Amino acid sequence: GIDPFTGEAIAKFNFNGDTQVEMSFRKGERITLLRQVDENWYEGRIPGTSRQGIFPITYVDVIKRPL
């Protein structure tokens, strides 16, 4: 089901994660935001896939912030 505490964002740019914990994505992908890790990073996942990880806040347009 849908978790009411998650947020939502759209990727503004392609992001290629450097490490296992970073999640790569392509511009235009819809991302579920799980939490804000710190002032620069979100943790999120791509709905319908097993992809999950952290990524820079500046790479996405936030539609709804996670609670």
Rank of each mutant, 00 (worst) to 15 (best):
G1H: 11
I2Y: 13
I2V: 13
I2R: 12
D3C: 15
P4L: 14
F5E: 11
T6P: 13
T6R: 09
T6V: 12
G7L: 08
G7D: 09
G7E: 08
G7M: 10
E8W: 15
A9W: 05
I10T: 06
I10G: 01
I10R: 06
A11S: 05
A11R: 00
K12L: 12
K12T: 08
K12F: 04
F13D: 10
F13G: 06
N14R: 06
N14I: 04
F15D: 03
F15E: 00
F15G: 00
F15A: 00
G17S: 09
G17T: 06
G17F: 02
D18R: 15
D18P: 08
T19L: 10
T19D: 13
Q20Y: 11
V21E: 14
V21M: 14
V21G: 15
E22G: 06
M23I: 06
M23A: 02
M23C: 03
F25Y: 01
F25E: 00
F25I: 06
R26K: 13
R26Q: 13
R26Y: 10
R26V: 14
R26I: 13
K27T: 09
G28K: 03
E29M: 04
E29H: 02
E29Q: 06
R30S: 07
R30T: 10
I31G: 00
I31Y: 00
I31W: 01
T32Y: 08
T32G: 05
T32L: 11
T32D: 08
L34R: 03
R35W: 09
R35D: 03
Q36A: 09
V37S: 03
E39Q: 10
N40C: 15
N40M: 13
W41I: 06
W41F: 09
Y42V: 06
Y42T: 03
E43H: 09
E43D: 06
E43V: 08
E43P: 00
G44C: 01
G44E: 00
R45M: 12
R45A: 10
I46T: 01
P47S: 10
P47L: 10
P47N: 10
G48F: 09
G48Y: 08
G48K: 06
G48L: 07
T49K: 03
S50R: 11
R51H: 03
R51P: 00
R51E: 02
Q52Y: 10
Q52W: 10
G53D: 01
I54C: 09
I54L: 10
I54S: 03
I54F: 10
P56M: 05
P56H: 04
P56K: 04
T58V: 12
T58G: 12
Y59V: 08
Y59C: 12
Y59S: 09
Y59W: 06
V60A: 04
V60D: 00
D61T: 14
D61N: 11
D61Q: 13
D61R: 12
V62W: 06
V62I: 10
V62P: 05
I63P: 05
I63T: 07
I63C: 08
K64I: 07
K64Q: 08
K64V: 08
K64E: 10
P66K: 04
P66F: 04
P66G: 07
P66M: 06
P66R: 04
L67P: 15
L67W: 05
